[in-house]
């Protein structure tokens, strides 16, 4: 019998719940969900035990990136109360043995790869920062579209944002409404779509740039507040970060397609 949403309150985790957790794991280089990128090949649920199979676009995808994705997948699934054991299996990777053993035995990257110098945290931090810059571009585009200019945007602080329900009433939950953005000492307000701002805030918090109400909302790629005169250049750099990610996405997509074609051909032989 297939598992359905009806199991949600039962003792076993549902496929949908597992998928939802995995959807929060991103390819750190592309800043896109591993579910959306179709890296997740299989989810097996047996009681409270969950097995996830992952295949990356090529066998020689950076082991550091492979490590981050498999560790994140493990940790996301483990947050479900109904899950007791998570097992991640990375397939078709030149370092799958080290990674599978390391991730499932909860070793550190340095333990799993004694040859590598140091841990993956520095690489992760750098990629997070790039993702933040790219998301800032999308958020800023939404604000420009709403009619704000560079000077207003560079002056925004976290306290100037207020989430609204679709009907315009204040809201603190996960609604699909919009944000009210207060500008020029709260002398006027504009409404902007919620998704790009929310996505930006998520990364800005992760990278410890924005947490207090008084914090400046947007920053240069180096993490400094933006001089209004440099707004255009910083915005260009944000655009560049999005192009870089989607270009690499094009390479990964291509490699995955080529690999799938090879597998199909060998299956036909």
């Amino acid at each position: 019998m297939g598992r359905t949403e009806a199991d949600a309150d039962g003792p076993e985790p549902t496929r949908a719940a597992v998928r939802d957790r995995l959807d929060r794991v991103t390819d750190p280089e592309l800043d896109r969900s591993i579910v959306e990128l179709e890296y997740v090949d299989g989810i097996e649920i047996d009681g409270r035990r969950v097995e996830v199979e992952i295949t990356l676009p090529t066998a020689w995808c950076s082991p550091a990136f492979a490590w981050m994705m498999t560790v994140d997948a493990r940790d996301e699934v483990a947050t479900l109360a109904a899950v007791e054991v998570v097992r991640i299996t990375l397939r078709e990777h030149m370092h799958e043995a080290e990674i599978n053993r390391g991730v499932n035995e909860r070793r550190s990257f340095a333990e799993a790869f004694p040859d590598a110098d140091g841990d993956v945290e520095a690489v992760r931090a750098e990629l997070d920062e790039k993702a933040r810059v790219a998301r800032q571009y999308d958020a800023t585009e939404a604000l420009l579209e709403a009619g704000l200019d560079g000077e207003a945007i560079t002056g925004l602080r976290l306290a100037d944002l207020e989430p609204l329900e679709a009907d315009g009433t204040p809201d603190d939950g996960e609604a699909t409404g919009s944000f009210a953005v207060y500008v020029a000492d709260r002398s006027f307000v504009v409404r902007v779509p919620r998704a790009p701002i929310e996505r930006y805030l998520e990364k800005a918090r992760e990278t410890d740039l924005v947490s207090e109400a008084d914090d400046v909302l947007f920053r240069t790629p180096e993490g400094e507040p933006i001089d209004p005169n440099s707004f255009d250049l910083v915005h260009r750099r944000g655009r560049l970060a999005t192009v870089n990610m989607s270009s690499q996405g094009g390479i990964c997509d291509g490699l995955r397609e080529a690999r799938e074609k090879r597998l199909e051909e060998s299956a036909d032989d």
């Binding site: 280089e29 790039k130 810059v133 790629p221 750099r237 560049l240 970060a241 192009v243 870089n244 270009s247 690499q248 094009g250 390479i251």
Partner: peptide, 27 residues
């Protein structure tokens, strides 16, 4: 690639830095 952003930023400031299109061309 995949550090087009770092590359362009550096090249924008250093006049003796050039870009070779290999890998980007077949796109």
């Amino acid at each position: 690639l995949p550090r087009l952003d770092d590359f362009c930023w550096i090249a924008g400031q250093e006049p003796n830095v050039y870009g070779g299109l290999a890998v980007a061309a077949p796109f």
